[in-house]
Amino acid sequence: MQKQKIQFEISYLKPQDLSVADTELLASAHEALNTSYSPYSNFKVGAALRLASGTIVQGSNQENASFPAGLCAERVAVFQAGVRFPGEVIETIAIAVSGGSLPATPAAPCGNCRQAILEYELRQDRPIRYLLAAGNETVVAIPSTRDLLPLGFDSSYLKQ
């Protein structure tokens, strides 16, 4: 039997440790919470991503009475960026949450979002960095989608 250990590093940052650009991006993610449509879970998620051009694109979760027909904030932002700014590189995505019983550690994207964002990361051949926040205490920084989804499904499985 062969074993392989998969590890990655995350950084826990205080708001004062963030760059001006990262502070602005997190503020945009918090602002996106205001457009969340989450009457069923009462768990609001706001996302904001920064493109290489400096453009910021927001998204928020959009629920539906027919669970799970809604969309997560992360995919709303990423898909919107893909349509409005095709081919532009996504550098960083900030995710803010509120409502429910917030954990001590901010919430990371769900599996569907990780897989969808991995596709963008692979297409641009550059990592997408994450900033995760819940409240204003600690920000978790993750260097890449591959860290969140190390065994992600990609096009290599589809080649004949």
Rank of each mutant, 00 (worst) to 15 (best):
I10C: 10
P15S: 06
V97F: 15
V57N: 02
F43L: 13
T35H: 14
R114Q: 14
Q4M: 14
N136L: 02
R75N: 09
Y157C: 11
T92Q: 03
H30K: 15
P109F: 01
L122D: 06
L158E: 10
R50Y: 09
I56F: 01
D22Y: 01
Y130G: 06
L25S: 00
L131C: 06
L13K: 12
R84N: 12
L122F: 04
A27N: 10
Q160K: 14
E137K: 11
N61S: 00
T138P: 08
S144A: 05
T35W: 08
V57T: 02
V57C: 04
A134C: 15
K5P: 07
N136D: 05
H30R: 15
D147W: 08
P109M: 01
N42T: 08
A47I: 03
I10A: 15
G135D: 05
Y40A: 05
R126N: 07
L122G: 04
Q2M: 12
K44Q: 13
A104C: 14
G82A: 11
S155G: 05
S38T: 11
Q16E: 07
T35K: 11
D154Y: 05
N64Y: 12
Y157G: 07
M1I: 06
G100P: 03
V97P: 03
S28W: 10
A73V: 00
D17P: 04
S144V: 09
E119L: 14
S144L: 02
G59Y: 07
A21D: 11
T23F: 03
N61F: 01
T35E: 14
L118S: 06
K44G: 07
F43S: 15
T138A: 12
F85W: 07
L151S: 15
N64M: 15
V89E: 10
L25A: 00
I6T: 06
A108C: 14
V76N: 12
K44E: 06
G82P: 07
N112W: 09
P68Y: 04
G152T: 07
R129W: 04
S53K: 08
S98M: 09
T23G: 07
L122Y: 05
L26S: 04
E88S: 03
G111E: 14
L102E: 11
A96H: 01
E119N: 15
C113P: 01
G54R: 08
A52C: 07
Q115T: 10
A107S: 14
I90A: 00
G111R: 12
Y157T: 11
